[in-house]
Design a protein around this nucleic acid. Sequence first.
DNA 1: AATAGTTTTGCAAATGTTTTCATAAATCGG
DNA 2: CCGATTTATGAAAACATTTGCAAAACTATT
Lengths: 341, 341
Amino acid sequence: MSDKNNKKVDIVAVAKVARVSASTVSRYFNHPGLLKPATRSRIDKAVRKTGYIRNRAAQTIHGIRSGTIGVLVPTLDHAIFAEVVQAFSDEVDAQGFTILLASHGYDAQREYAILRKMLEHRVDGIVLTGLDHDEAVFQLIDSQSIPAILMWNYAENARYPSIGTDNWRAGQLIAEHILDLGHRDIACMLPPVAGNDRANARQVAIMQTLQAAGVSVRPEWQLTTVYSVAASKRDTIELLQRKTRPTALICGNDVLATGAMYGATAAGVRVSEEMSITGIGDFKGSADIEPPLTTVRIPAKRIGREAGAALSSAIIDPASVSLGVHCEPKLIPRSSSKAVA
Amino acid sequence: MSDKNNKKVDIVAVAKVARVSASTVSRYFNHPGLLKPATRSRIDKAVRKTGYIRNRAAQTIHGIRSGTIGVLVPTLDHAIFAEVVQAFSDEVDAQGFTILLASHGYDAQREYAILRKMLEHRVDGIVLTGLDHDEAVFQLIDSQSIPAILMWNYAENARYPSIGTDNWRAGQLIAEHILDLGHRDIACMLPPVAGNDRANARQVAIMQTLQAAGVSVRPEWQLTTVYSVAASKRDTIELLQRKTRPTALICGNDVLATGAMYGATAAGVRVSEEMSITGIGDFKGSADIEPPLTTVRIPAKRIGREAGAALSSAIIDPASVSLGVHCEPKLIPRSSSKAVA
DNA sequence: AATAGTTTTGCAAATGTTTTCATAAATCGG
DNA sequence: CCGATTTATGAAAACATTTGCAAAACTATT
């Protein structure tokens, strides 16, 4: 409130004002119980007067935790990752951690570079998105002996504890659902799988499940569409203009499914009556679109929370290493899919 | 690759391996030009061998920049903020900064607390979302003499350089558009404005503009709806079930508008023919929904980029303080709005 | 009032870097 | 091959803290 003018206000400046030693001020923050109430309040006043703000950098070089966690995501531009990060951040924030966030845009090189930067900042833990990463990335983390977690996907045998969903299972669930409804003329619209183990697992699962049921997807009905409503709308319109149409369109995620629904509407095809459309994800809004979208729920919020909880406890008590958590995907049948006529 | 086993690998460990002094290793990183090529490559080898990672905390206490920027948003759960943050992050990342991200959930208390934590980490700069903040927040930033930027909103007389759009203008644009189309029976669906200067500015602008044209919105047509497709769908259905219907529904943002479109569809009301619906934001997907949504574009990506550029240049060269950038909102008329019959 | 015990505080060393200053080594012109 | 420059390196101080140890200040007990 008052002495904010003078240059550097460090612990000794506070000490001077409070007429104690620097050590005592340090203790005031770290072990207040050791102080006599009288000195405590004297320091309290001094801190307030000088506007002192602790310097975590200086603490960190004493091996004290930095209080930061590095979070690495492919992008924040997909609402779903933003949601996970939000949940994660809320959770660790409650434990006193702040997140150092960066996105690599599905570029393994950048992921490595960013990870290095985070380690330079001496993060107390690391969260990566997905299971697959460059071996160099894993080795770098290993060499630093800090806890790491793989978020979003789940697999028992992952390199680090993984907290997320089994994307293979998600793909299987939706494919089975469509088969159960009697569909045989099925089209698939999937995102590019390069560098994206989630998308890849879903694709493989869908294809295998259909195959196993004796259904094969015609090559011209296997669409690879970038993650965007616009692209998927366009591709769907194109698909529906051809002579033969599928009775069902399985989309790799809810964004593609949303675009597909718009595309069908634009092409004058009634969704569910004339063609079923499904997504994966159960994003916000998927329940409300008309007709409501059949999808597989991937509990983003829960994943973020669990990951946050697991990582902060691994940091605070290194003995408490989680083995990972499988957040089961769940089929959510809504009206965008229907038994074949 | 090899000696990762031994405990602490610091600059002196590297120095020992390279048979030079610690100072030389420090120079290797900070002023490589001063080194003889031979020693440089010797150190290079040593760094590689020991797996040394620089310790920014130790640098930071020398007054060297921490290389971090604190980013404070209300939430990441709204795709639009995630988009801004992504663009911001990409921009500052290119300048070597990493972001420390946190969300306050529209809680002024938390904003202050988070800001303090960021300052403890000695961030090199701060970005806040929106123009209005607790006076304590401003004072805290002032006392630290680090650059700060207000992102998302723009106003000439803001406390710090602001980079964003004029939300009042955005509200005005959409209201004028609806008036121009001849609508007089107008409903408004707006988010709660508490602690949200953006939403507040839009609301005021819309109401004033309508008022100025002699149009007053009936109280029962002034809906306050939380930011969610589900809520807005529900409220729209409810609205459309009443005896008298508006010919136009102005929504405070594209999420509400999306829900409103779904609600209208669900209620059997054809959008644009029977009722115009508009949003604000031009979110991803708004162009593709059926019918495509009339809205006011708020250039999130550009805002993030410009903010990132402005802040990093203010950090690198304190003389280059931006005065703010107004990213003009722009009316995007699409087919969800139509002249009144 | 003296002793023993406890609580509170300060001193100094330590943390991992950077940087100033000084010195040693290399280079150069003659 | 010598002295004068220039270039490369090291020693030590500085940065803002924490912490082990010991001294000082209290309390309690007799």
